[in-house]
Nucleic acid binder design. Structure first.
Length: 736
DNA sequence: TTAATGACTTAGGATTATGTTG
DNA sequence: CAACATAATCCTAAGTCATTAA
C-alpha cells in the first residue's frame, strides 16, 4: 500500500527535476547561439571523478579495423578439447558416471557429428581424467577404468543421444511457419506465474545489531533491511556518501517509531555480527556435501520445471526471468543518485498477470491476489510490476531461444540488411546536409555522421538527477569533445571523452572530414561546457528523419549494420580456406574483436588478470631459458660432429634430435607469447555482447560452413539455441 | 507539441559451474 | 583433491524507440 504513494512521489519528483525544455528550431544556421539549452555545469564535474574504469585509446573508423587485433589464440569456449574429441570419441570413451544417473533403453549409436556435441561431451570430459584428448583418430577402448561394463557405457551414450534427438525433434521450427497478422504476438498463452523469493528468515538470537555500542533487537522489517546493508559491507560502495544516505533514509522508513527515535546516525550502527552471520552462511553453503548439493540442485530443477516454462501457442517455451527480483539495496551503475535505496519486496498485489483468455490464470500465493489479470496478446510479457526505485515497469518475458524473441531478432537483422542496400544514398544525403541552411539539418547530419562512422548510440534525453550522467550521440555536450586542427599528423581531429551506457567511458580521437569539423566548431560557438552540442536535435527528430529514408530505419540500426558488415568483411579478409581450424578460429575471434572495439564493448579487467598474466609471463621466461639451453646443446653437438670430420650417423641423430627440441621449444614459446599478447589485448574487451546482439548469426553460420568449422566452436549451447533459426536456415552462400 | 509511459533490446558485473593444475 | 582459472549463466540496470496522454 505504501508502494503506490511512493510511486506517485517519484513521479512528482520527476516532473520537478525535468530539464528546461528544448526551444523550437526554426532559426537558420549560425543564428542560434542564443537559444541554447542551458544545463547546470555541475554535471561536468561528475564525469571525471572516480576515474572511469577503462580507456580505449584509438578507435579505427568503421571498416578499417585491420590492425585492431594482433593475435588471438585462446578461443572463446573450451574449444580445444572439444575439437579433439569431436569426431570419433563416441566409440569407447568410457562414460562411467553417465550411466549412473541415466538409465534407459538405448537408441542406436551416435553419428559422430552428434556425439561430440554440447553437454554430452562436456560432462564426459570432466568426469574422467581424460587422456589428453585423443586426436581425431578412432580411439581404441583404451585404458578404460574397470568399473563399468561396456554395455553400460553404450547405454549411457545412447541415452544421451536419444535425449538430444528428442530435443531436436521437439524444437519448434517457428521460422518455417507463417507469421501472425500485425501486432498479434500469440493466440494462446498459459503459465504458472512468477516464482516468489523466499520469505525473510529472522536472525537467530545470538546474532545482534548494536547501536552506539549497545545491543538492540530490531523489528522484522528493520532487521531485514539492516541485513541487506550488512551483506554488502565488503563492497566499496557502502562507503560512498550517496549510497549511505539513501540507504539510511530508506531504512529509517522501515523502522518502528521507537527504532527511529533511537537510530539517528548510521555511523553509530554496528553491523559486524550480521555481516559475519551472512558470511558464515555463504561458507556453509559452499561446504555442503555432494549429496546435499545434489539435493539442492534437484529442488531447484523442480522449481524450473514448474515456473520456468510456459505454453505459447501449444509449444513449451522457456521463460527468461521467471524468478521475481528479490528485495535488496539498489545498486545502479556509475555515479547513480539513487544508489543505496531500498528495492522493496514485490507482492502479488503489485503484479499484473498476462495470459490467454481461455487459459487458466496462475493462482496467486495463498491469501493473496494479483493486481490484475489481463489478456493482451499484442504484448509478449507474462507478468509485470512497477519497480519502486525508478518507477519503471519490469516484465517477465520469454527466453532468447523462444519464438517471440527469435523472430524479432531475425527481423532486426533483416532491417539492417535492408540498410545495406541504401546506405550509400543515405550517406550521400547526410554529407549533403552538412551544408544545409537549416541548423537542425546540419546538426542532424553531423550526428548521423557520428552514428554511422563511430557506431554511437542515439542518446535519448534523461532526467537530470534521476540517473547517472551518461550520454549518447544526440545528448553529447560541449565538454565531451575537444577539437584539434591538427593532431598526431592528422588534420581535423575530434577527441571524444564521455560516459556512455552503463557509465562505460568512450574515449576516441577521430580524424573527420573538414565540413564536419567546421560544423562542430560552429555548434560549439559561444556555448558553455555543460551545454548540448546538438541543441536543436533530439532522437525523435533524428529517427523521424531516418524512417522517412527507409521504413524501419532508426539510429540503432546503424550499429547493427556496421557491426555485422564489419564482421563479414573482417572474416573475408582474415581467413584462408587452407588454415587449420585453430587458425580459423583465431581469425574469427579477431573479427569479433574488431566489432567489439567498434561498439566500445568493454569489461573490467578480470580480477585475477594481473596474476594470471604474471603466471604466463613467468612460464614464458622459463621456456626461454629452456630454449637457450637447448640451443647451446645443439651447438655443442654440431661442433662435435664437425670436429669428427667423417660422417657419424649416431652423432648426426643426436644433432637432429637437438634441433627438433629447439624447434619445439621455439614453437611453444611463440604460442605462449601469442597467447599473452592476445590476452593482454582482450583485457578490457568483451566479445559476448556483440556476438549476442549485433552480429547476424547467419554470417557466422555461413562462415562455418564455408570454412568447415563446426558451429560448436563458435557458439556454445545457449547461443546455438538462441540462433537455432539461423543455424537451420543458412546456406554457405549467405551474404549479409 | 511535448512529456510520460510502456515494451522491448542491450549491457556488464556477480555468481555458479566446469575444467585445469600442482 | 584442493586451489585456482575460465567459461557459462544469471541478474537486473540502462538503454532505444513507439505510443499515449496531457
Amino acid at each position: 500500500m505504501g508502494r503506490e504513494s511512493d510511486a506517485k512521489g517519484d513521479a512528482k519528483l520527476k516532473q520537478k527535476g525535468t530539464k528546461l525544455k528544448r526551444l523550437s528550431d526554426r532559426e537558420n544556421a549560425g543564428s542560434g547561439g542564443d537559444l541554447i539549452k542551458k544545463r547546470s555545469s555541475k554535471s561536468k564535474e561528475k564525469k571525471n571523478d572516480g576515474s572511469p574504469k577503462q580507456v580505449r585509446e584509438v578507435l579505427e573508423p568503421v571498416g578499417s579495423c585491420s590492425d585492431l587485433v594482433k593475435l588471438e589464440l585462446q578461443g572463446d569456449f573450451t574449444e580445444k578439447k572439444k575439437k579433439g574429441l569431436k569426431r570419433k570419441r563416441v566409440k569407447d570413451e568410457p562414460i562411467e558416471e553417465e550411466a549412473a544417473f541415466v538409465s534407459e533403453r538405448g537408441i542406436k549409436p551416435l553419428s559422430d557429428e552428434e556425439a561430440s556435441e554440447g553437454e554430452a561431451q562436456k560432462k564426459e570430459s570432466k568426469k574422467k581424467p581424460k587422456k589428453t584428448v585423443k586426436k581425431e583418430e578412432e580411439e581404441q577402448p583404451v585404458t578404460k577404468k574397470p568399473k563399468r561394463s561396456k554395455e553400460e557405457i553404450e547405454e549411457a551414450k545412447m541415452l544421451k543421444m536419444k535425449k538430444k534427438e528428442e530435443e531436436e525433434q521437439s524444437r519448434w521450427r517457428w521460422w518455417e511457419e507463417e507469421r501472425y497478422e500485425d501486432g498479434v504476438k500469440w493466440k494462446c498463452l498459459e503459465h504458472n506465474g512468477p516464482y516468489f523469493p523466499p520469505e525473510y528468515q529472522p536472525l537467530p538470537d545470538n546474532v545482534n545489531f548494536f547501536y552506539n555500542g549497545k545491543k538492540m533487537k530490531l523489528s522484522l522489517a528493520a532487521e531485514e533491511v539492516a541485513l541487506f546493508f550488512a551483506q554488502m559491507l565488503d563492497h566499496e560502495y557502502t562507503t560512498k556518501k550517496v549510497f549511505r544516505e539513501n540507504f539510511f533514509r530508506d531504512w529509517r522508513k522501515e523502522m518502528t517509531h521507537q527504532e527511529r527515535l533511537v537510530i539517528s546516525d548510521l555511523e553509530k550502527c554496528d553491523f559486524r555480527e550480521l555481516h559475519a552471520f551472512h558470511k558464515d552462511k555463504v561458507e556453509a553453503r559452499k561446504a555442503l556435501s555432494k549429496e546435499e548439493k545434489q539435493a539442492q540442485k534437484d529442488a531447484n530443477q523442480k522449481i524450473v520445471d514448474k515456473y520456468g516454462f510456459c505454453l505459447l501457442d501449444n509449444h513449451r517455451e522457456r521463460i527468461g526471468n521467471f524468478k521475481l527480483e528479490p528485495p535488496g539495496l539498489f545498486r545502479g551503475r556509475g555515479e547513480h543518485p539513487k544508489q543505496g535505496m531500498l528495492k522493496k519486496r514485490i507482492q502479488p498485489e503489485d503484479i499484473i498477470i498476462n495470459c490467454g483468455k481461455e487459459s487458466k490464470p496462475p493462482a496467486p500465493p495463498a491469501g493473496h491476489h494479483w493486481k490484475e489479470v489481463r489478456h493482451d496478446n499484442t504484448v509478449t510479457w507474462l507478468a509485470s510490476w512497477t519497480e519502486n526505485v525508478q518507477g519503471s515497469i519490469k516484465y517477465i518475458m520469454l527466453n532468447a531461444n523462444s519464438k517471440l524473441k527469435g523472430e524479432k531478432d531475425w527481423e532486426k537483422y533483416e532491417v539492417a540488411r535492408k540498410l545495406k542496400s541504401c546506405v550509400d544514398s543515405i550517406r550521400d544525403g547526410y554529407l549533403r546536409d552538412l551544408k544545409s541552411k537549416q541548423m537542425v539539418t546540419r546538426q542532424r547530419a553531423v550526428a548521423l555522421y557520428f552514428i554511422d562512422k563511430l557506431a554511437l548510440r542515439a542518446g535519448n534525453e534523461k532526467e537530470e538527477g534521476e540517473t547517472a550522467d551518461t550520454v549518447g550521440c544526440c545528448s553529447l555536450r560541449v565538454e565531451h569533445i575537444t577539437l584539434h586542427d591538427e593532431l598526431d599528423g592528422n588534420d581535423c581531429v575530434v577527441e571524444f571523452d564521455f560516459l556512455g551506457k552503463d557509465s562505460i567511458r568512450y574515449y576516441n580521437k577521430v580524424p573527420v572530414i573538414k565540413k564536419v569539423f567546421k560544423n562542430i566548431k560552429l555548434f560549439m560557438e559561444s556555448k558553455d561546457p555543460g551545454d548540448e552540442l546538438f541543441d536543436r536535435l533530439n532522437t525523435a527528430l533524428l529517427n523521424k528523419h531516418l524512417s522517412s529514408l527507409m521504413p524501419g530505419l532508426t539510429a540503432k540500426v546503424f550499429r547493427t549494420y556496421n557491426a555485422s558488415i564489419t564482421l563479414q568483411q573482417q572474416l573475408q579478409q582474415l581467413t584462408n580456406k587452407s588454415d587449420n581450424v585453430a587458425e580459423k578460429l583465431l581469425s574469427y575471434n579477431r573479427a569479433n574483436r574488431a566489432v567489439a572495439i567498434l561498439c566500445n564493448h568493454q569489461r573490467a579487467p578480470p580480477k585475477t588478470f594481473e596474476q594470471s598474466m604474471a603466471n604466463l609471463h613467468s612460464k614464458i621466461v622459463a621456456r626461454k631459458e629452456q630454449l637457450a639451453l637447448a640451443k647451446t646443446e645443439l651447438k655443442l653437438a654440431k661442433k662435435e660432429l664437425k670436429t669428427r670430420g667423417s660422417p657419424d650417423s649416431k652423432l648426426q641423430s643426436v644433432v637432429d634430435r637437438k634441433a627438433a627440441a629447439v624447434k619445439r621449444c621455439e614453437d611453444q614459446l611463440l604460442k605462449m607469447e601469442v597467447q599473452a599478447t592476445d590476452r593482454e589485448e582482450n583485457k578490457q574487451i568483451a566479445l559476448g555482447t556483440s556476438k549476442l546482439n549485433y552480429l547476424d548469426p547467419r554470417i557466422s553460420v555461413a562462415w562455418c560452413k564455408n570454412m568447415d568449422v563446426p558451429i560448436e566452436k563458435i557458439y556454445n549451447k545457449t547461443q546455438r539455441e538462441k540462433f537455432a533459426w539461423a543455424i537451420d536456415m543458412t546456406e554457405a552462400d549467405f551474404e549479409f
